[in-house]
């Protein structure tokens, strides 16, 4: 066969072409791999400055879009409800949260030592050094928020992030020069030690862990089976993990899942902090247990 081809001065085009193609492919793969390795290495090494630069460039547009989105979502909801009702509802919610916060502080103080403790508690809560930050963007799929304050403003990792009504949003998870990432308490990676604030101050608070289940949802876990949890019970931080100060509002129990086959009971929580309805958050910079 080969002799015949040689005689006729013919070539075997297909295998030769395949060989050449395969050689070129391998070379391309190796070159592609080296380029990819170089790019990923570069991105890994310069992640913080690259992200910080990007946020700096886009933050003016992000802020405008955030405010527009907030206004538009309110406007759209007014098609379903009267605008005044939405506004009134928001005001009432805010007022309600403020009252809940006050009740929590007062109940806790009463349980421990009536009037003196109440004064101490109020002093403690007003002793927080707070930094105001604006929301720029949110990764809803993973429950991470981006704010416009960073290491140059004195922000560092694990600082608690709260609302103006002392409702807990989360903690600082990553810090860049002018921006920070906040891990919301609804993130799947988030665990917060919490307690249920009993209306009856003589009772011992029920302790548990508030875990995020993504998409702005929370649940209460690790609660003893014999503990009595009711819907509408208010959850606050217990401060045991040392990251969050105690008595920050978390949410209300919306449903309880008690099963004797499970070692602990769980409960769904309705968060008291709605990140989509606010422009600003506060970072507590001086809390250390």
């Amino acid at each position: 066969m080969n002799a015949f081809l040689k005689k006729k001065n013919l070539r075997l085009p297909l295998p030769q072409a395949n060989r050449q193609f395969s050689l070129i492919s391998w070379r391309n793969i190796v070159i592609g791999f080296i380029i990819a390795l170089f790019i990923f290495g570069f991105l890994y090494l310069f992640e913080a400055p690259v992200k910080n630069t990007f946020y700096t460039i886009t933050s003016p547009f992000s802020q405008i879009l955030w405010q527009t989105g907030q206004g538009s979502s309110g406007f759209l909801s007014s098609f379903w409800k009267a605008r005044s009702l939405t506004q009134e509802n928001n005001n009432l919610k805010q007022e309600n949260q403020q009252l809940l916060s006050n009740i929590t502080v007062l109940s806790e103080a009463l349980r421990q030592d009536q009037a003196i403790k109440q004064v101490i508690q109020n002093t403690q809560s007003s002793n927080f050094k707070l930094i105001l930050a604006e929301n720029i963007g949110i990764d809803l799929a993973n429950d991470f928020l981006l704010i416009n304050k960073g290491s140059s403003d004195g922000i560092s990792e694990n600082m608690p992030v709260i609302s103006s009504t002392k409702a807990l949003y989360g903690k600082i998870s990553k810090v860049y020069k002018n921006f920070s990432q906040v891990m919301l308490i609804s993130s799947k990676q988030s665990v917060v030690d919490a307690k249920i604030q009993n209306a009856d101050i003589t009772k011992t608070p029920i302790l548990g862990a508030v875990k995020g289940s993504g998409n702005s949802l929370l649940y209460l876990d690790l609660v003893a089976l014999d503990a009595q949890i009711n819907t509408q019970d208010v959850l606050i931080t217990s401060g045991q993990e040392g990251i969050f100060p105690k008595n920050l509002l978390i949410g209300r129990i919306s449903s309880v899942d008690k099963n004797d086959l499970k070692p602990f009971q769980t409960a769904s929580i309705l968060p008291l902090s709605n990140i989509g309805q606010t422009d600003n958050v506060f970072i507590i910079t001086n809390y250390k247990k």
Binding site: S62, I136, L140
Partner: peptide
Amino acid sequence: YSFLPHFT
């Protein structure tokens, strides 16, 4: 990341 999170 800045506009759509308000329309969930």
